[in-house]
């Protein structure tokens, strides 16, 4: 980390990170004990800075995107018409937002959302159904490695969740599917959540106290 920079800059940067993390940690610790510590206003100020900084990064990202695609258009790179389309769409939406009196809730932008953005996003997500069908064909097989267990779990969940089949199944099948979700699946998910949290904790400890930090 910071291997190419001066050791003093590394240490100052790490010191700032450690101070901010320590302050936020103390603030959250005080909140856990229901005591208002004097760190609260500073913590809120830091959170506000994070909010402003992230908003600024959005603007920076927009400028970078525009710069990249304008450069592609100027250079005549491959598929430059798509870049031109992006820039034109960006300018149109931006002008519509600034020119309309209602801002982001103006009828023109509402129409853009209803007629273009929403159907486009929904269409792309609808392709998931085809991926599910393709995945079911390829992997929910008796002969594939571990396929029997995956197939059994998928079938019991599908049959219990679907009205058509649930009416024909005995109640014990529904209870078994509920048990699967509430006991083994939950145990696995808890393990994953706890494992992920411990990994983050150890990564933080290593960052601050590790021999290479």
């Amino acid at each position: 980390m910071f291997a190419q920079r001066s050791p003093w800059i590394n240490r100052i940067a790490l010191l700032i990170v450690a101070l901010v993390a320590g302050l936020l940690f103390v603030d959250r610790l005080g909140d856990g004990f229901n005591s208002d510590l004097p760190t609260r206003p500073i913590a809120n100020l830091l959170y506000t800075w994070a909010l402003l900084l992230s908003a600024f990064t959005l603007i920076l990202g927009v400028f970078h995107l525009l710069w990249t695609h304008l450069d592609r258009i100027q250079q005549g790179s491959q598929e430059w018409p798509l870049s031109l389309l992006l820039v034109v769409a960006f300018v149109l939406v931006l002008v519509a937002g600034f020119a309309a009196s209602g801002g982001v809730t103006s009828p023109l932008l509402e129409w853009t959302f209803d007629a273009l953005i929403a159907p486009g996003q929904a269409t792309l997500f609808a392709l998931t159904g085809f991926f599910v069908v393709a995945a079911a064909y390829r992997y929910l097989r008796l002969g594939s490695p571990g396929g029997l267990w995956i197939l059994a779990g998928a079938l019991i969940t599908l049959l219990v969740q679907t009205p058509l089949s649930q009416q024909a199944l005995p109640p014990v099948a529904t209870q078994f599917a509920d048990w699967l979700l509430l006991v083994p699946v939950m145990a696995v998910m808890r393990g994953a959540l706890l494992g992920g949290a411990l990994a983050v904790l150890f990564a933080g400890v290593r960052l601050f106290f590790g021999p290479k930090g």
Binding site: L24, T48, A50, L51, S54
Partner: peptide, 8 residues
Amino acid sequence: GGVASLPL
């Protein structure tokens, strides 16, 4: 801001 803005 993602997760950074949530504590506020």
